[in-house]
Structures are given as structure tokens and as C-alpha cells.
């Protein structure tokens, strides 16, 4: 049953910073994305590739962090740090996918 502060919408209407109201799972029960996860543009695109058509989200937006001091230099440092830490696994697709997810999160914190 959907609670009053939740809403089910087509995935095309999703915007970044919306928050899921329930887990998204595959038919076999494997978790694709957890309930309390924050949606971003790249994540929404990935969910579409899983064939997700509708999503139940919380109506209220979560407060974002505001930090106007971060600039491109910080982004470059994040990328360089990740390149360094992932240097021995850069030939492994799963690890590069993980690196991309972490990178999007760290850079997202700078701009939110």
C-alpha cells in the first residue's frame, strides 16, 4: 500500500534528487537499487536499461548539501585519487563500474 507522502510515476518523469520509497528488484529478487538510495541522472539511465518502467518515490525532496567553494580542481583531485586507488584493477569491467559509481557520488557531493 502506498503511503500518503509517496507517489508512483513513469521512469521518464524521474528527476535527480528524488528518493525511492521502496527497493527496486529483479523478478528473481536480486536487488538493483535500495530504498533509501538517492537517484541521479546516470543512475536513472541505468535503471531504464534494466527495463524499469515505473518507480515509487517520496514526494518530499531530501535536503542537499550546499558547498559553493568546490571547483573543477576538486573534481580533478577526486578523479586522480580514484585512478590511483583503482590502478591495479583498471582492466576489470566490474571494478570500473564500481569506480564510476563512487566517482559520480563524490563529484555529486561537490555540486549538490
Amino acid at each position: 500500500m502506498i503511503k500518503s507522502k509517496e507517489k508512483t510515476i513513469p521512469i521518464e518523469k524521474l528527476t535527480p534528487d528524488m528518493t525511492l520509497a521502496m527497493d527496486i528488484t529483479k523478478p528473481n529478487g536480486d536487488l538493483i537499487f535500495g530504498q533509501s538510495g538517492r537517484l541521479t541522472k546516470p543512475i536513472i539511465e541505468k535503471l531504464k536499461r534494466f527495463g524499469v518502467k515505473k518507480i515509487t518515490v517520496l514526494v518530499e525532496r531530501a535536503d542537499g548539501h550546499q558547498d559553493p567553494r568546490y571547483i573543477k580542481k576538486e573534481m580533478k583531485e577526486i578523479e586522480e585519487g580514484l585512478d590511483y586507488r583503482f590502478r591495479r584493477v583498471r582492466h576489470i569491467p566490474l571494478m570500473m563500474e564500481l569506480k564510476e559509481l563512487i566517482g559520480e557520488h563524490l563529484k555529486g557531493k561537490l555540486t549538490s
Binding site: 525511492l20 529483479k26 529478487g29 536480486d30 536487488l31 538493483i32 537499487f33 535500495g34 530504498q35 533509501s36 538510495g37 538517492r38 541521479t40 543512475i43 541505468k46 535503471l47 534494466f50 566490474l94 563500474e97 564500481l98 559509481l101 563512487i102 559520480e104 557520488h105
Partner: peptide, 20 residues
């Protein structure tokens, strides 16, 4: 990849944990 199979998750699940 066996680690994710044991846990029953996709890599994208990890993105949903990062803010918490």
C-alpha cells in the same frame, strides 16, 4: 563477481548506500 551473487545484488545497489 561471486561476492555480489552471494549477496543477491547488482553493482548499482552500492550507489544507493553511499549517502547513508
Amino acid at each position: 563477481p561471486k561476492v555480489l551473487t552471494i549477496l543477491g545484488i547488482e553493482p548499482l545497489f552500492i550507489a544507493g548506500c553511499l549517502e547513508d
